[in-house]
Design a protein around this nucleic acid. Structure first.
Lengths: 343, 343
DNA sequence: CGTGATACCGCACACGGTTGCATAAATGAA
DNA sequence: TTCATTTATGCAACCGTGTGCGGTATCACG
């Protein structure tokens, strides 16, 4: 009966459909259908039960590679992060939530990072050869728009998240930060502050960003001089650069930081200099990552709806994979100014 | 020549070995060998070049599923995180670095989380059916030890990271935190502090942890009363629980926190209560995550060598995959007390 | 008992690679 | 020219699943 005793523990091969078929004296096709609940050729209830119990007993686990080869679906979805080695709390938060969402849908997420357009081709190759069922492109720059229309991925559904503009023929979740950015600037300027410093990583590539534009618009409306500080985008780098900057240019009245990591680095620099927040310098950041809540002075920030973003994006991708011809889904979420103690 | 114009954009099928073979009037076997640099049957240099240029021109990308089916290797490695939905900065840091390491070795990482042993079976199934080439089990509890010897994964190499004890027959990277914990306690007690509160998530499951043991040992040596605070392990939860605790039990002189997240939550609670750190209450955390550096009072912590941990673990896994019979690799790293301003 | 409908099941191929072995071509030596 | 040897390529089987289509029991019904 049970000849699978402990006589040979090694070479314990993985059990396949054929093994089940052999034990039950069926064909592997029947076993496959019994397990997958196939409907076209009817399988008797009795057989289904026999197969299922045998599968459970033998510890059968489908071979994903074989199934993929046959069905063309891998169960993998790819997340593109437009950054180097997905540094930064924002990308960490996004990837973590995307991951959780993917697992909820019994998919697995693989992540790839691409910062410069020049890396695009290699990243393409990566996902393409992994044969992902779909891609979530979480971009914060115009690279996607220049890439996608080329049709590099004709057969792989893509959902875009975080693009600045609406894209044509692409399912999309977009976070509108215009209101948040406007409110943030108005909020910063309200107490009569005039000298607001805009802190960002790559100034040139941020020209199209609504944060940048809100800053410029509100500052010009108020008749203030524009002031920029460029850093490498990290906490450490921002801390150092701001310290230098203040030594040279004096103390600004407010900081408008492109994201929370830079805001946190800036906060630390101000601590080093014994400047009080917000009395001496006010700070506003963007993203709403958890860390900003736990500083001694919790930071004001424009919070992104991470959960909704990730949930909708994976939902859209699922929908598209299920029905490639379905109607487009495009949703706009809003980022919201959360006023805390730093402003 | 180029009949791949824009005449039919749809139905652009993926190019396979056979397509290349047809164009070049070769067999797909030869093409395969030419691309893989196979050595046993020699391929002429001329043919190799022809094949490679044709592959590049046609945009050939190997189908990973098919290759996996044939070779039995998927290029995927699995990371087990022993936590719910891998929350917490520590797990985030580990998964990010593991990810980077995996990509450096042109592998992809998939992550699965399992907190309670009851989830183990489903997690097993997950990785098993995804056919990972290997698993890195980043556990901080005894679950692995009770699971692995059962031989649930007879064919999949496993590297254990973060286990408390040496395991037999398992490649392992272990972080020794005993010295760090001892130093931390000695450091906390040095200025004559007597009332040190141990803050942890699940007290019962931490009994075997060297942090717990160092705390008990040093406190008993000093003749102090033991004092514990149990939280849910999050920043928010720790903040709330500690606030409640202090209201009831008064202000301790020092906090010995099981990890940095709890230390950060505790720090915030102290800020709420207008208590000064470290004058009123000293704080020591564990892990050395980046966030602790950027508080107004940078936290003292026992820092784990993340980079080395992840680099070695993936290295060991690679080695084991390459040669399943090779000698065991077990390495111990040391966590180090980093004294900052909170103590 | 014959016939057709129906419910089940198996055969065989496909998916896209890898690889052992046979074979063809080229080369060299006798 | 012939044969042995090296070099280069093709044939075919295989990995494990999914699936169209044809085949075989079963049964009802006339």
């Amino acid at each position: 009966m049970n000849n699978d005793s402990s006589n040979l523990k090694l070479a314990k091969k993985r059990v396949t459909l054929k093994d089940i078929a052999r034990v039950l004296d069926l064909s592997h096709a029947t076993v496959s259908r019994a397990l997958n609940g196939s409907s076209d050729p009817m399988i008797s209830q009795k057989t289904i039960e026999r197969v299922q119990s045998a599968a459970a007993e033998l510890g059968y686990r489908p071979n994903r590679a074989a199934r993929s080869l046959s069905t063309g679906q891998t169960g993998l979805i790819g997340l593109w992060l437009w950054t180097e080695v997905f540094q930064g709390s924002y990308h960490a938060a996004v990837s973590r939530m995307m991951h959780a969402e993917a697992m909820r849908r019994s998919r697995q997420l693989i992540v790839d990072c691409v910062a410069r357009p020049s890396l695009l081709s290699s990243s393409e190759r990566s996902f393409d050869s992994w044969s992902v069922d779909g891609i979530i492109s979480h971009e914060s720059g115009p690279a996607f728009e220049t890439m996608y229309p080329n049709g590099n991925y004709p057969n792989v559904p893509i959902v875009s998240t975080g693009a600045y503009h609406w894209l044509e023929h692409v399912d999309q979740v977009r976070v509108n930060m215009i209101d948040g950015a406007e409110h943030a600037m108005i909020h910063l300027l309200a107490p009569g502050r005039r000298r607001i410093l805009y802190v960002t990583d790559d100034l040139r590539s941020r020209q199209g960003d609504c944060r940048f534009q809100s800053y410029v618009r509100q500052m010009e409306t108020a008749g203030n001089r524009l002031e920029f500080l460029e850093t490498n985008g990290t906490r450490r780098g921002t801390r150092e650069r701001l310290t230098d900057y203040i030594a040279k240019a004096g103390v600004p009245e407010g900081l408008f930081c492109h994201n929370d990591d830079m805001a946190i680095g800036a906060y630390r620099a101000l601590c080093d200099l014994k400047l009080r927040v917000p009395e001496d310098v006010a700070i506003v950041g963007f993203d709403g990552i958890e860390d900003t809540e736990y500083l001694e002075v919790p930071l004001t920030t424009v919070s992104q709806p991470f959960e909704q973003l990730c949930s909708l994006a994976t939902q859209f991708l699922d929908d598209r994979i299920e029905d490639p011809t379905r109607s487009l889904q495009q949703v706009e979420l809003k980022a919201e100014l959360i006023v805390r103690d730093s402003s």
